[in-house]
């Protein structure tokens, strides 16, 4: 057994320093489309390219609804792709919903370093779930920030939902939420949980969990990288300011491409 101890020590510390400092390791996040100023013609072309209507035409250019973006890169690749992509701090993208301002949904001081999370997969493709799992790997190690996965909703403070909410998962998700003690918050992770993603609204999928549960924090991405989920958790805990999920071209500082 000692070989494992030695191996563990040899490996050293792998954990990111985020949120103390920003993480910049390559390949850790896919980036996000940036609302860009551009001509209406261009804008129209971009909008038709997007399979999930994440891009919306606006006066100044193209607005981006991050809830819908499924990271297909169609607006980023190709010969004529004026859409900017944000590649630094882009993972700090979790936003909040109006729900999260309710007084009785806030976590008191007792929760500042200990939040127990129940993960429910309400029907995703497995990528989001895999990224949630990565939060426990040595690189992200969410325990150091006081986040723990819990086996039962009885001990859970936070419900982390991934997936587009299938018909079959409605009852389990409802039961899990109801079984949690208050105060409790809901973090929806991934485009599918926010808007249905590519699955959209159908006979099986509800097009996101927002209509079904009072979601507090929304983490965009398809899948959101682990750090984005971590940011979402920090936002839910009130330890990080939220980001905007709907980004307007007119707010963009970028010059037109």
């Amino acid at each position: 057994m000692s070989q494992w101890v030695i191996k563990g020590l040899r490996t050293g510390i792998k954990s990111t320093r985020y949120p103390r400092t920003i993480e910049t390791a390559p390949g850790m996040s896919p980036g996000l489309p940036v609302a860009t100023r551009m001509s209406p013609d261009m804008a129209q072309m971009m909008v038709t390219r997007c399979p999930t209507s994440a891009l919306e035409p606006a006066q100044a250019g193209v607005d981006v609804n991050l809830r819908r973006c499924i990271h297909c890169f169609r607006c980023a690749r190709g010969t004529d792709s004026p859409m900017e992509w944000e590649r630094e701090r882009d993972f700090e993208c979790a936003g909040v919903t109006p729900n999260s301002n309710d007084h009785d949904r806030r976590f008191g001081p007792a929760f500042s370093r200990s939040i127990h999370i129940l993960v429910v997969d309400a029907g995703d493709c497995g990528a989001c779930l895999n990224e949630v799992k990565q939060l426990n790997n040595p690189y992200y190690n969410m325990h150091r920030l006081g986040f723990f996965l819990t086996p039962t909703p009885r001990h859970a403070d936070l419900l982390l939902v991934v997936g587009a909410l299938t018909e079959h998962m409605r009852l389990p998700l409802r039961k899990a939420y109801d079984a949690m003690p208050t105060p409790k918050r809901v973090v929806a992770v991934g485009a599918c949980a926010l808007s249905g993603g590519i699955f959209g609204r159908s006979f099986m999928c509800a097009g996101g969990v927002g209509d079904f549960l009072p979601v507090d924090v929304e983490v965009p991405g398809n899948p959101p990288p682990p750090l984005a989920i971590l940011h979402g958790l920090l936002v839910a805990a009130g330890r990080k300011p939220p980001a905007l999920l709907y980004r307007r071209a007119e707010d963009s500082t970028e010059a037109p491409g």
Partner: peptide, 22 residues
């Protein structure tokens, strides 16, 4: 798990997406 994350990062920097979408 470290190895898995390293591979995810390699695909992230190689193709832009950790799961090779798109």
């Amino acid at each position: 798990a470290i190895l898995e994350e390293e591979l995810l990062r390699i695909s992230g920097s190689l193709t832009g997406h950790r799961y090779l979408f798109g």
